[in-house]
């Protein structure tokens, strides 16, 4: 835990960061790299946001609800009121947080498998309503033609975020770094210790002066807000959303898988899962085996989890402890 500027940890992290910052200068217009890495950061961010709440010990299987509400909130606001995507994405996050507030009220006393199941079921509520409210949400037709991110002016330079893949890459990199920082606080700070105490033994934590309900609620709200934000970003990046796309089980389950794969107690764990699995699948497996890529994907998950029950990050950590 020595945080000096020269520790190898900081060096490694900085090296990786520098790589991601400067690799575009080497690659110029490698569209595949930008597309894949943008989505990698995106899923990394989603996994980090999900893990914030998972750190309290309650596993959610319903984050697609926040994601979908964020996407729809953002897309509809931009469709009807023509606000800048920057504003609507924030609004999307808030819509997610409002639903998170409902969760804390309704599911506040649920734990474990019952909590997981209640969250899983709660995805259906906004999904079916949006699917049937055709006059406002376009129902099953989905929202199409969502405006992309508007250009940002920095001094005299204008960055076209809507068109430039490179700009989107940096945008998602920044988002992910911010969420990574929040995630780090959740593990390392005093708040993080409270969260950890909750996870290990709730009654004991409350004896020690942790406000159980407050800590859980705030964590969930933050997690929901960030997931909603991701949903909004997704809507504006893709330009179209449909209920089955944004309220899918895939969106709820993938963060869990990425996090478990990377290591759920590690600062970079969820991100690590995304950084390994997503590019590997999209660039390598898909082109190697157009039909069987999921078999490789599944096998990697099985084998990794059999050998590293705490995620692949724990392997690195363990190797370090022993050496």
């Amino acid at each position: 835990m020595i945080r000096t500027a020269t520790s190898p940890a900081v060096l490694g992290f900085t090296a990786a960061l520098l790589f991601f910052i400067f690799s575009p200068f080497l690659l110029q217009d490698n569209a595949v790299y930008y597309r894949v890495m943008t989505m990698t950061f995106f899923y990394g961010a989603l996994a980090l946001a999900w893990n914030l709440y998972a750190l309290t010990g309650n596993i959610s299987l319903g984050h697609a609800a926040f994601f979908g509400l964020g996407a729809y909130g953002s897309a509809l606001l931009s469709h009807y009121w023509h606000l800048s995507p920057w504003a609507t994405v924030l609004f999307g996050g808030m819509v997610g947080a409002v639903y998170g507030l409902l969760w804390t009220v309704a599911f506040g006393c649920l734990r474990g498998a019952r909590f997981a199941l209640a969250t899983l079921a709660s995805v259906e509520i906004p999904r079916v309503i949006i699917d049937n409210w055709e006059s406002f949400t376009f129902g099953s037709l989905g929202v199409v033609g969502i405006t992309g991110f508007s250009a940002v002016r920095v001094g005299s330079v204008s960055i076209a975020l809507g068109e430039s893949l490179k700009a989107q890459y940096y945008l998602l990199l920044c988002c992910t770094l911010v969420i990574l920082l929040i995630h780090r606080q959740f593990i390392k700070s005093k708040w993080g210790w409270a969260v950890r105490a909750l996870r290990e033994e709730e009654t004991a934590a409350s004896m020690l002066g942790v406000n159980v309900h407050f800590t859980r609620s705030v964590t969930l709200l933050l997690s929901a807000f960030l997931t909603g934000l991701c949903g909004g970003v997704y809507a504006h990046l893709m330009g179209l959303i449909e209920p089955p796309l944004v309220f899918s089980l895939h969106i709820s389950a993938l963060p869990l898988v990425l996090t478990m794969f990377g290591g759920r107690y590690l600062v970079c764990g969820p991100l690590l899962g995304a950084l390994i699995l997503y590019p590997l699948d999209q660039v390598l497996f898909h082109s190697l085996l157009p039909v069987g890529h999921s078999i490789l994907y599944g096998l990697i998950i099985i084998v990794t989890l059999l050998f590293f029950p705490h995620g692949i990050g724990s392997w690195v950590q363990r190797r370090r402890t022993f050496s």
Partner: peptide, 24 residues
């Protein structure tokens, strides 16, 4: 914090190898 360096080494090498395969 010490984990960082070791976590990121494999990622960096993975990304580099992917990049190379993308470019080649």
């Amino acid at each position: 914090m010490n984990i960082f360096s070791n976590i990121f080494k494999p990622i960096v090498s993975l990304v580099v190898s992917l990049t190379v395969s993308v470019c080649s």
